[in-house]
């Protein structure tokens, strides 16, 4: 069973603003990129026998989310995004040290022995007005959002 945590900043996201600015002012997407947002996505693999996965999600979020500056939404299984933008998930195809550390911390120090795996990625939410938003999102991912020698991406439509 997989618990998904979508985490976003409730304070201004300077990284998203910088990426938006670069795409619009430096890379020619001023007329098609209407807006851009960013979320972290944690995918946490847990034992199938967990009684109340949403309660477990809330307890995991106490470690993975800083509620002073972040909000989150939990789900079990698939993750669904709102309409109005193209969600582009970016993660590492090489080993992700932060995810490895999170797994060790959750299991070995915080007692979440039911956690089997942790995967971390970033979802870029691209509001596009181009005729083919998916193709434009692919261009943006390959042109800026990833370095293919360490990152992968997928369009989550």
């Amino acid at each position: 069973m997989k618990i998904k945590l979508r985490v976003w900043l409730k304070i201004p996201d300077a990284e998203a603003a910088t990426v938006k600015n670069t795409l619009r002012r430096r890379m020619g997407y001023e007329s098609v990129l209407e807006d851009l947002g960013r979320e972290r996505l944690w995918s946490i693999d847990v034992d199938d026998g967990v009684d109340d996965p949403m309660d477990l999600a809330r307890r995991l979020a106490r470690d993975l989310v800083n509620e002073n500056k972040e909000s989150y939404r939990a789900s079990v299984g698939s993750v669904e995004f709102e309409g109005g933008y193209v969600p582009v998930r970016v993660g590492l195809h090489i080993e992700d040290g932060e995810a490895v550390s999170a797994l060790k911390r959750l299991r070995d120090r915080l007692g979440f022995e039911m956690v089997r795996g942790v995967e971390r990625s970033v979802v870029w939410k691209l509001a596009l007005s181009s005729p083919d938003p998916q193709r434009t999102a692919e261009e943006i991912a390959e042109g800026l959002l990833i370095n293919p020698h360490k990152d992968f991406y997928e369009i989550m439509t």
Partner: peptide, 9 residues
């Protein structure tokens, strides 16, 4: 600030 990844922007 190494936003996105170091050197990318």
């Amino acid at each position: 600030q190494d936003r996105l990844r170091a050197g990318a922007i």
